[in-house]
Write a protein that binds this DNA or RNA. Structure first.
Lengths: 241, 241
DNA sequence: TTTTTACTAACGATCGTTCGTTATATTGAT
DNA sequence: ATCAATATAACGAACGATCGTTAGTAAAAA
């Protein structure tokens, strides 16, 4: 699989196994607070609970979501939910951690073994955008409900945000050292990249209203960033879609 | 006052009278639902109520803010609040409308009589950024609590968002017709501009941590956008700060 | 004294959470 | 393979707390 030329369909196929891997990790990490024994059962219900939480919260907010709403959405009773987490706040923390792990794991795994800096930049841009499409409800949720987190968890969320920004800054910086990119400020460039990537999942209604697909937006971002950095030798790598 | 060269200090001086004007408008529009007679009293308390709402909501969310919290923050009793709005939802609607009016009024007023398209672009960028600094709590609030609005009010919020985007798209388009800007897609350019502007008030912690002032960010945005559009004749207009 | 503004106590509704009970699944002896 | 016995999972009524809101009363202004 050539990651540089991947489109969204390729991406989804690629990460399906990774997704269940990370669910196993999440279960393992919360083994002590979950009062259900069979892992199969936990994963099945945890996924239902997470999905329902995202759906309801993204419509009316996490605070406004009652445990009765959630129970109905997840197909459990309100009392039964409490076998999977100690309280509502803990559910929020679990869901945020789970999503962050998924993002970091996949993003760094795909970027790691890119052959050169131009590929690395392009793969990082596409992977981040495709992740935010695949996990759009989580990205939106993570952003809107950050204020409800406890202080240490909010700190983790901020650090995670800065970590991905640093990834982009590092790629830009290394490409500049190799003489491939123009000497723009790496940190500000990374900040702009993040802002544009964020637009995709925060203003989704705008893009769907204008019939812009995720593959179109991916190509637009790649072209925009490469033009901004005046990437040399782009004629050797051709965009697909 | 030369708007093209204004900095944030100039801006705040300029709009102080406009701010009270708009408070009078807001009072007038809600005259029928407010059970207090003296306009002086209304404005004094309404400002306290709005400010407290923004402060508490931006920390814990509008839903999580109880009317008892708000009463304490605004220096009134919980029952006394209800002389100024019929219910919690109406307070949200009032506050959103009030802020939108302020943004639209000031933005279009300052942009209107710019002498040329390059000035128009620069004034629009700076005004929008300075507004989002001056009214940062409202901007953040407006964005985070949009989901709590009623359907017609959410529609108004979206339209307002698109209106400012259209303003930027129109400036870009007109500048291109005059042969001043490169032929980039006006709508996508406007979308990027909005995304970068939004970063300022949504990720404020990032910029304050990095000691970036609003004037520095203004200059950065202006330079970035003008480089992107390859603005000609920028040597005739010089940045101040 | 009259009018205007603000306060306090109280109401019904709904919240997160608990707990005694029921239903379901697994086990082990026949 | 069958069926009690046991262990596991899910249920749902109930609790105290807190929510938005109201109404009768007190304070302040005119």
């Amino acid at each position: 699989m050539d990651l540089v030329e991947m489109n969204y369909a390729d991406f989804t196929k690629m990460i399906l196994t990774l997704k269940t891997d990370i669910y196993h990790q999440t279960v393992q990490e919360n083994r002590n607070i979950i009062h259900v024994n069979k892992e199969q059962t936990i994963i099945k219900n945890l996924e239902k609970i997470f999905d329902a939480t995202l759906e309801i919260s993204n419509e009316k907010g996490f605070q406004a979501m009652s445990m009765r709403d959630l129970a109905k959405g997840a197909g459990l009773s309100s009392g039964g939910l409490y076998a999977y987490f100690p309280g509502k706040m803990d559910l929020l923390t679990m869901l945020q951690k789970h999503g962050r792990k998924m993002v970091q794991e996949i993003l760094f795994k795909l970027v790691k073994d890119a052959p050169d800096h131009v590929s690395k930049l392009r793969i990082a841009l596409k992977t981040h955008l495709y992740l935010s499409e695949f996990m759009q409800p989580w990205f939106y949720f993570s952003y809107m409900e950050a204020k409800n987190l406890s202080e240490p968890e909010r700190h983790n969320a901020i650090e995670s945000e800065l970590t991905t920004e640093k990834l982009f800054a590092a790629i830009v910086s290394q490409g500049q050292d190799a003489g491939l990119f123009e000497p723009r400020d790496p940190q500000l460039t990374a900040a702009i990249i993040k802002a544009i990537l964020q637009d995709w999942y925060l203003k989704r209604w705008k893009f769907s209203r204008r019939n812009i697909s995720v593959d179109q937006y991916a190509n637009f971002i790649v072209e925009f960033v490469e033009a901004f950095l005046d990437v040399h030798g782009t004629e050797t790598i051709r965009l697909k879609n």
